[in-house]
Design a protein around this nucleic acid. Structure first.
Lengths: 127, 127
DNA sequence: TCGTTGCTACTACAGTTGTAGTATGCCGCG
DNA sequence: CGCGGCATACTACAACTGTAGTAGCAACGA
């Protein structure tokens, strides 16, 4: 019950990132934690949080003073999965994607090695 | 002169994918080449191609009969780069991304090996 | 030469997204 | 207990997207 089919927009995902990091936060905290040149207005973040709530991506936890606190209601992983799947559809599979990362120097062979070895000990094998 | 800052939508990217594959194509060909259950209407594809043209992502090559032919005006790589960069921003780097791919079984260790070795022999080295 | 048919150019439109203002209410301080 | 201030809930809105219809022209076959 967290494998929901929720699709998040770019900005919504950004806010979620902050929330995953903080664990729990008020709108004010979220807004202040957004680290960008053109930081969005408080009410903008508020709107996003409301939409996230409607989509079931966050939930209210408690009320402190007159402000509510929110926590994630979907896992980072499930959201990543969507994002990645979408990208993979677009570029045509993992292979081309990773190849692209290596080609463009975004990922070194050492990185690959590191991942390989850390993946050799895992809980689960292939699909 | 092809490093433009063009941003493509999902559907636009899909059409570009087909065009990259075909090299050159008419709207009709593009529409027929879109392999989906809910194939969009001819005029829908036509609109997308028009928008792509406005954005400078495709250009007209020749006219055959009363139909125009189009070819890509941006490279696959430059578009991928944007997509990937965006994703990386969201998920926080290549490492986590590839780790995610391996974790979720989207990429096998053998795949990684294959990429490693094919990357060892390339025309160019690292960035 | 004409009609038929396909293609283009233009128009439309609802849903989504980013962005924010406004009105109102509740909380804590003095 | 009343007020000032911050938070919430609601409203707004333009740009972007996906989706497609329509009008009109041009090319090819008869």
């Amino acid at each position: 019950m967290s494998k929901e089919r929720i699709a998040l927009t770019k900005f919504e995902t950004e806010v979620m990132s902050v929330l995953w990091r903080l664990g729990e936060a008020s709108v004010r905290e979220l807004q202040e934690a957004i680290d960008r040149a053109d930081r969005p207005a408080y009410t903008t973040v508020q709107t996003i949080v409301q939409r996230l709530e409607q989509k079931g991506a966050v939930r209210r936890t408690r009320k402190a003073g007159n402000a509510y606190f929110f926590e994630p209601a979907v896992t980072r992983k499930s959201v990543y999965r969507r994002l990645v799947e979408e990208l993979l559809d677009l570029v045509g599979g993992s292979q081309p994607l990773v190849a692209h990362l290596v080609e463009t120097g975004k990922l070194s062979l050492d990185d690959l090695k590191a991942i390989e070895s850390s993946a050799k000990t895992p809980k689960r094998g292939r699909k």
